[in-house]
């Protein structure tokens, strides 16, 4: 119930934070703490050093930058959920942020924290992958941009190096693309047993000329349902056709199994939610 003892640093500049990261042992970054703190309380995580990013002033923003929107990594779910800019230009992020955890989690949790944690049932990673976003990491050797498809490496593992900090997330302004995020929520905490994010465009004839589907909760990391995308792309999306295509959503994926769903049930749910999310996006 009480975490093992640790050193706590609360730097006010990014540089200071990076210094702690490279000079201390066994460091964990605190970016909202909605996943880390419970793990520490259960003593499942016992980092020796905590570097809290909350006092660094310039990590919390949502701005338009040309054809893109950039978000500071310490932007909270609540800020994303209520951002007029995102609602207008990249609604998938607010749609997703709105169904994360509960009000307390949304007030505390941050987009950077969620992405770096790389929870295979995380909501935000599904949206980020679907949007083909890019993540800016800053380390001792300067900054680099990591594409979403390269960012989520495996179970609770991202492409960030131990001495890097995720500072910014860059998503495209969607200019009218239709999006939706739907999930089968676990009863008590509401996390995704299966979650599906969809971003699509339809041409004048009603054919789908742009489609991305991100799936969470199903494999050991979030993934794009490429098999489904391939089938639907360039076609008119009638109900039967979507249903047929959605059966491919777990193709090539080693579907996980836990108390919230067997392999068989999860695979089935992934199909159901793919259909529902595609339909919801079409009607968005």
């Amino acid at each position: 119930m009480i975490p093992a003892s640790f050193e706590y640093y609360s730097p006010t500049t990014l540089k200071e934070a990076l210094d702690f990261l490279s000079s201390r042992e066994d460091v964990k970054i605190l970016a909202g703490g909605q996943s880390l703190v419970p793990l520490m309380k259960l003593r499942l995580a016992k980092p020796r050093t905590i570097v809290d990013l909350s006092r660094i002033p310039d990590l919390n923003y949502i701005r338009e930058q040309g054809s893109r929107i950039v978000l500071g990594s310490m932007t909270t779910y609540e800020q994303i959920e209520t951002s007029a800019l995102l609602q207008a230009k990249c609604p998938l992020l607010p749609q997703t942020a709105a169904v994360v955890g509960d009000v307390q989690v949304r007030n505390q949790g941050t987009i950077g924290g969620s992405l770096a944690h790389a929870d295979p049932a995380g909501d935000m990673p599904a949206a980020i992958l679907t949007l083909a976003a890019e993540m800016k990491a800053i380390g001792p050797n300067g900054e680099r941009w990591i594409r979403a498809e390269d960012f989520f490496v495996g179970l609770l593992t991202s492409a960030l190096e131990p001495d890097e900090i995720l500072t910014e997330v860059r998503v495209p302004a969607l200019n009218g693309a239709k999006t939706a995020y739907l999930k089968a929520a676990q009863r008590a905490a509401g996390f995704a047993v299966v979650g599906v994010a969809v971003c699509l465009r339809l041409d004048q004839n009603g054919s789908c000329n742009n489609l991305a589907i991100g799936v969470t909760g199903v494999g050991d990391k979030v993934y794009r349902a490429e098999a489904v995308e391939k089938i639907l792309l360039g076609k008119r999306l009638d109900a039967n056709f979507i249903e047929q295509a959605a059966r491919e959503v777990t193709r090539g994926v080693d579907v996980i199994e836990d108390i919230n769903g067997s392999k068989e049930y999860r695979s089935h749910l992934a199909g159901v939610y793919t259909v529902r999310a595609v339909k919801a996006a079409m009607q968005a």
């Binding site: 676990q186 009863r187 108390i259």
Partner: peptide, 16 residues
């Protein structure tokens, strides 16, 4: 025991 927390145990909240 696989249900060690209230999250895993799955009790309905007032919302459900």
């Amino acid at each position: 025991l696989l249900t060690l927390t209230l999250t895993d145990y799955g009790k309905s909240s007032t919302m459900e």
